[in-house]
Deep mutational scan, measured.
Amino acid sequence: EYSEEELKTHISKGTLGKFTVPMLKEACRAYGLKSGLKKQELLEALTKHFQD
Rank of each mutant, 00 (worst) to 15 (best):
F50W: 05
V21Q: 13
G36Q: 00
S3P: 07
V21W: 06
G17H: 08
A30N: 04
A45N: 10
H10C: 09
L33F: 02
K18W: 08
G32M: 02
G36R: 03
H49S: 04
E1D: 15
S3Q: 07
G14M: 00
L24C: 00
L7C: 00
K34D: 13
Y2C: 05
V21A: 06
A45P: 02
K18Q: 12
S12V: 13
T20A: 05
Q51R: 09
G17Q: 14
V21G: 06
L16R: 01
H49T: 02
E6D: 13
T15R: 04
L33Y: 01
E1A: 08
T47H: 04
Y2N: 05
F19E: 06
T20S: 11
T9E: 13
K39L: 04
K25V: 13
P22Y: 08
S3V: 03
G14E: 05
Q40C: 10
T47P: 03
T47N: 04
H10F: 10
K25P: 00
V21F: 07
T15H: 02
T47F: 05
M23D: 07
E5C: 07
C28K: 03
A45G: 07
K25G: 06
L16I: 08
A27F: 15
K48W: 07
F50Y: 05
P22L: 06
A45F: 02
G32F: 03
F50E: 03
H10Q: 09
A45R: 08
E6V: 14
K18S: 15
T20K: 03
L33E: 03
K25C: 13
K38A: 10
G32C: 04
K8I: 12
S3H: 08
A45M: 10
E4K: 09
F50A: 04
L43H: 04
E41L: 06
A30K: 15
A30P: 03
K38F: 03
T15A: 04
E5I: 11
L24T: 00
R29Y: 07
L46D: 05
L37H: 15
Y31P: 00
Y2I: 15
G17K: 08
L24Y: 04
K48H: 06
P22V: 05
L46Q: 01
E5G: 09
T47S: 07
E41Y: 06
A30E: 07
E6I: 14
L7G: 00
A27E: 00
L46I: 02
T15V: 02
Y31E: 04
L24D: 02
K34Q: 13
E6Q: 12
I11T: 04
T47D: 10
Q51W: 02
K13H: 12
K34R: 11
L42F: 09
L43Q: 15
K39N: 00
Y31T: 06
F19S: 01
E26T: 03
L24Q: 01
L43W: 05
M23Q: 12
V21E: 11
A27D: 00
F50L: 06
E4T: 11
E6R: 14
M23K: 12
S3L: 11
Y2D: 04
L24P: 02
L46E: 01
R29V: 08
S35V: 14
T15F: 00
R29A: 14
S3K: 09
E44C: 09
I11D: 00
K25H: 08
G17W: 14
L33H: 01
T15W: 03
E26R: 14
S3Y: 09
A45V: 11
K25F: 08
H49I: 03
Q40Y: 08
E4L: 08
P22M: 06
M23R: 09
H10V: 08
